[in-house]
Design a protein around this nucleic acid. Structure first.
Length: 204
DNA sequence: CGCCTTTGACCTGCGC
DNA sequence: GCGCAGGTCAAAGGCG
């Protein structure tokens, strides 16, 4: 982990916000991007969980775009699955009523992801946005399931995944994917504090 | 009644 | 080609 630089979260609105819901009163953060090796990704995170904030991913290339900034970046980081589903098309149209994620022949455009881990008793960080859970899957080598959430704001197709580490039950890994196209819906003092720290210490 | 969670089925990509 | 793992859909049910 050597590329530290300011980082923002995947939020367009950086204005302060407050609304405590699920954020643990004491939690630490490890921000990382692109843990692209699906077998080692979360294990990697565990190596660094004693730090309050720090990257533990392989390729620290979380772009400003994925983090919610306006200008475009070419970052192509993605979360550790090997599938590389076309999340842009999937999120945009959901491929209709079917369950086809990627059209054959379509060029894969992988939406960058930005993941971070927290030490928290709760799985869900209240980041001020409204999320709807759309799936949950058991993950190999992990006794805890991975939950899939989607931003409920109309037209916003930001997704996030939440998973607790099996080796360290106190660590929750949250992966954001996409950019919010709307202001934050509620505020969270705790989360803003976290964001502030991230902007100071982290970089993607 | 609307929103959300749960959950099983389905689809895709990858490794063997 | 097959099996596995990850990701998504959508019906059903719960809750405020």
């Amino acid at each position: 982990m050597d590329n530290f630089a300011p980082v923002n979260f995947p939020y367009n609105n950086s204005s302060s916000s407050t609304s405590p819901t699920a954020v643990s009163s004491h939690l630490s953060l490890n921000l990382m991007t692109d843990y692209s090796d699906h077998n080692s990704s979360y294990d990697q995170l565990e190596d660094d969980h004693d730090h309050n904030i720090g990257f533990v991913g392989k390729n620290v290339n979380c772009s400003s775009e994925e983090l919610g900034l306006d200008h475009v970046s070419s970052a192509t980081s993605e979360l550790g699955n090997s599938e590389g589903n076309d999340l842009n098309s999937a999120s945009g149209s959901g491929s209709g009523s079917g369950k086809i994620h990627v059209k054959k022949g379509d060029k894969k455009i992988r939406k960058p992801k930005c993941a971070f881990q927290t030490r928290s008793q709760v799985d869900i960080l209240d980041d001020g946005y409204r999320w709807r859970k759309y799936g949950q899957k058991a993950v190999k080598n992990n006794k805890f399931p991975r939950s899939y959430y989607r931003c409920t704001y109309q037209g916003c197709n930001v997704k996030k995944q939440v998973q607790r580490l099996s080796k360290d039950e106190g660590v929750v890994v949250t992966t954001y994917e996409g950019t919010h196209s709307h202001p934050i819906e509620k505020s969270t003092d705790n989360f803003e504090h976290i964001l502030t720290q991230m902007q100071i210490y982290s970089s993607c």
